[in-house]
Design a protein around this nucleic acid. Structure first.
Ligand SMILES: [Mn+2]
Ligand SMILES: [Mn+2]
Ligand SMILES: [Mn+2]
Ligand SMILES: [Mn+2]
Lengths: 254, 254
DNA sequence: TTGACAAGTTAGGCGCGGCTAATTAACTTT
DNA sequence: AAAGTTAATTAGCCGCGCCTAACTTGTCAA
């Protein structure tokens, strides 16, 4: 019954597809999975049987498909790998969205956990470190076209450094009071200081790394504030309004 | 006859293994290929048939295996992808050699050409740009352990910048005369200014990107100067002494 | 109520890439 | 030269993941 064997790349893609379909529409229909993965319906049925044998989805013929506990966790894991790699490709390597997406989906299956962590950390490093910052990486574009114009690089470096010092000087003025995650606007970063949620609701979030001390960035807020899309530890995550209200943060200075 | 279909990850690994065995020992024996890939001998025979059908190796039962023209090119391509990814993992993500190696071998099959180019360029960018340089990336290590100690980052940035300016001031003093590739010592970088080789000998090198204007770095030189291991365009390459004598370079300043 | 039709499943087939076991070829020894 | 040893090949099997074709099931409109 258990079955903890490694998932094949193919099955991981099925999990991923189901995850996204459940999120977009309410349920994951066989036909939609098939379309998404460019595969015939019969193949989907086979995959569902395989996932069901591994107890990752609850599946009986003709009935609706749902994730099991471990199934949802496994799906989240794939989605995270995909999104972390894509982020790296887009933000650091400056690859266009579409290419980054397909590349991420191809490589997500062979990247190990420690290596992924490195990718995530590196992306964060470049974003956070004053010498770097995503702005700096744009110099990479220039570098790609011309051959290593060092003068230009150097000038850019100085400008960047000055900006950082400027910002730092102003930081004392900023408020550092606790506020709800939902009150942040897109682009703002903050650190989690308290999580007050029902057990059931918080499980998923904790699994995604929503713990005290973690830095989060709000990516976008849907029309009525539900859901809020945030990024933490390099991964994207959708948080329902209710949940966002139970998460208290403190804004970073920089 | 033709058969230009995409190579499977498995067949690419066989090509890679054969390539390295031919380079290390003179020939690639079935048993050695099997050992290297953790596979049984019977599987190797099957793979050799498949490669032979695609005209990538010359193979008749019980006889020695050699690459065809296109086979060697295909093998080189895999080896390049492997080495470029590994380089990125080691130099930028600061992963240990062994992990980098296995990760590279896992991902080399799913990375597209344009994305690989990005990896290569980015690694070069970090190495060449004065604001960065491999030395800088070591700050990443520190960043991984502590959470974004920005003060430290900033200090490091200043130091680095000063060093660059220092070096730059001295550059006028350096000689810029043409010399043979073989005369460089490990660690030195130079730009190719002239290639004087027999057609047959130069084909392989040109395929690897050994063209006028390209930057090369000498990695190591074997006891008697043969072969010379160099890196160009982010890839590693072994050059025979004879060949190295026909390649003229000019040292870079920085 | 009852077709008609779309969605889903089952059955069976195929290519790939491993494997084992049995066979054959190529070398070594005696 | 014959026997023994190691390397390589063949034959045949299996699991995976896709496919097509034929079938069930569910739904909705006449
Ligand atoms: Mn994928
Ligand atoms: Mn994916
Ligand atoms: Mn490989
Ligand atoms: Mn490899």
């Amino acid at each position: 019954m258990a079955a903890t064997s490694e998932l094949s790349a193919s099955l991981e893609d099925y999990l991923e597809a189901i995850y996204h379909l459940v999120k977009e529409k309410q349920a994951a229909r066989v036909k939609d999975i098939a379309e998404r993965l460019h595969v015939k319906a019969a193949s989907v049925t086979g995959a569902l049987r395989a996932l069901s044998e591994r107890e990752l989805v609850n599946y009986t013929p003709y009935e609706i498909v749902t994730f099991t506990r471990s199934g949802e966790a496994a799906a989240l894991d794939v989605v995270r790998r995909h999104s972390a790699l894509k982020d790296f490709f887009v933000k650091i390597l400056l690859v266009d969205e579409a290419s980054a997406d397909s590349a991420a989906c191809a490589m997500e299956h062979s990247v190990t956990r420690p290596l992924l962590e490195r990718f995530v950390h590196f992306t964060q490093f470049v974003e956070d470190c004053p010498r770097a910052g995503t702005k700096w990486v744009r110099g990479f574009s220039y570098y790609c076209d011309h051959d290593s114009k060092q003068d230009n690089c150097e000038k850019c470096m100085r400008t960047n450094l000055d900006e950082v010092i400027q910002k730092k000087a102003n930081k004392g003025a900023q408020a550092m009071t606790e506020q709800q995650l939902g009150s942040l606007k897109p682009g703002q970063k903050a650190k989690i200081v308290r999580v007050a949620l029902a057990d059931a609701a918080s499980r998923r979030l904790v699994e995604m790394g929503m713990t005290v001390g973690t830095m989060v960035e709000v990516i976008k807020v849907a029309p009525l504030g539900d859901p809020v899309e945030i990024k933490l530890r390099g991964y994207h995550l959708s948080v329902r309004k209710k949940e966002a209200e139970g998460i208290y943060v403190e804004q970073a200075m920089l």
